[in-house]
Amino acid sequence: MLDTNAFDLRSYISRNPQSIAVWIALAALITFGLLRYDNFGGAYNISSFLNYNSMFIIISVGMSFVIMTGGIDLSVGSVAAFTSVVAAYMSPYGIEIALPIAVLAGMLFGGLNAFFIIALRIPPFIATLATMLGAKGGALVISGADTIAVDWGSNFTKMGMEKVFNILPWSIVVVGIIVVGLWFLLEKTSLGRTVLAIGGSEDASTLMGLKVNRTKAFVYLLSGGCAGLAGVILASGFGAGQPLEGIGWELSAIAAVVVGGTLLTGGLGSVPATVAGALLLGLVFNILNFENGLGTISISAYWQMVIRGGFLFAVILFQARVMSRNKRKGRVA
């Protein structure tokens, strides 16, 4: 039976009040951009914006699953750098070979994280920090600390450079399909609900006989796989494996997840809102670039980061306000 209620907007908002802020901020920023800049809504800007940000969207969504269980994955940036090199080496065999192998490589690191965290009971922060350093070193080792050019003769660069039916970049289409799949998984399957239950209370979940360990292994494998895919898009879009890229990506991903209203302690989260969070962070840069383009002011890349930080803070503050008002309402009801 088709379930229409789950994707009903009002029911979505009532279940995810914490994500209202990110949608409002996103709408405001888009409106601002459309009104102020001529080419903001143009096909070129939209497509290059989505192409570039597809990497961050997929990493953030992978991260959101980990955070929803109450964990954290600091390794995603280095893993993406590592898998971009793997993908570059595999590029002569075409995207259909390079992509799965790079994703598998990412999942290997995810599996390592899962092993540390579940079997050895190492806290996620430490375990994934170790993997982050390991993957970073590994990327430098297999690449000889240099960018690895991809094979331009194969179809590998299609992923990051060409568009489906000349409309949307391949990267965002692939990421979009996966994200919708993961959204479905979170909202509609018992696996998704177990993810949230573990974040809500791991003790209660164990006592209910839920498959706690298996589910935790899943989220780290997923996060690793998502980082692997981001590595493929990176190599494909820039035409080279980038062992030195990915620094700070994990923090951007965590920021996107938090802006999207997922609780850092776990138990509450939303896939679309995480995507919105990633888009919001990207849009701030996009708009600042346009602002520089107008020629009225000139903001350096460093100042752009400062502005992004301030903006992030404002959204989180807004989110906290919405939440506390929502709670008060709940108490009266």
């Binding site: 209620n5 279940r15 509609k188 399957t189 018992s190 177990t194």
Partner: peptide, 29 residues
């Protein structure tokens, strides 16, 4: 050790039942 506070009444009530509620990986809503 009992409730998952942020989950709804419905979600809390069916957590232990999920395996039996799932068909083809999807919860029968």
């Amino acid at each position: 050790e009992g409730i998952i506070p942020d989950m709804t009444v419905r979600e809390n009530l069916t957590l232990a039942l999920l395996p039996k509620l799932t068909r083809n990986g999807q919860i029968d809503r």
